[in-house]
Amino acid sequence: MSAPHRRPSGPRRRPRRAIEIWLIALLVALVATVQIRSEAEVERSLVGTDTTTLAFLIDDLHRANDSLAAEATDLTQRRDALQAGGSSAADQELTAEANRLRAIEGLVPVHGRGIVIVVDASSLQALDLQDAINNLAAAGAEAIAVNDHRVVIGVAIMQTPNGVTIDGALVPPPWTISVIGDTNRLAEAADLMTQQMHSDRRVRQATYRVEADVAITAVITQRPFVYANGS
């Protein structure tokens, strides 16, 4: 009876073991590399962005998302009302929508809680007024007028040799800026704006007041589209 045949150990087994060790080493290296690289990628993506900027961004996005959620809720209600009713529900919805859009586009007089800013200055430019209006819009302004001239995005505020014009009409200082919207946010923005203006040598006076009912009677005449087509 011959002895049981044993698989040879020695030189033939060594390459297999070596491969196993190499595979394990590769795996270890891979895990370590992935960990370290992911760390480096985060660092790289944040170059130039400080934590304060990120914190402000988060704050803005929270507010934006709240507004979007409110809009979605409102639209859902309108859709449900349209689904439930017939053409009478549609008439009601369309009339309300038309009134809202006329107010947004500055085509009708409006009133509501808001603030009034008065700026008396010499040689302020159209860019200064555009910046002020944009700051108020960013603070939630829903309707704006400057010296009884209605202003929405799209109304030209221009610099001319005679001074600043709104939709072609000269608007000499002092500027009285009437704004309707959330008074807390508007007052916060107006506070910052007037503080900044006080450090501007051109500005003689910059004040604001919160009012329970700001009336904006000035309106814009809508120009029909000449070049734009609906699609």
């Binding site: 369309l94 859009l101 947004i104």
Partner: peptide
């Protein structure tokens, strides 16, 4: 009413336009 609102929506940027 729908035609009127369509025009207002176009001016408010609520619809696609081209040109």
């Amino acid at each position: 009413l729908q035609n009127e609102v369509a025009d207002l929506r176009a001016h408010a940027g609520l619809t696609t336009i081209h040109g």
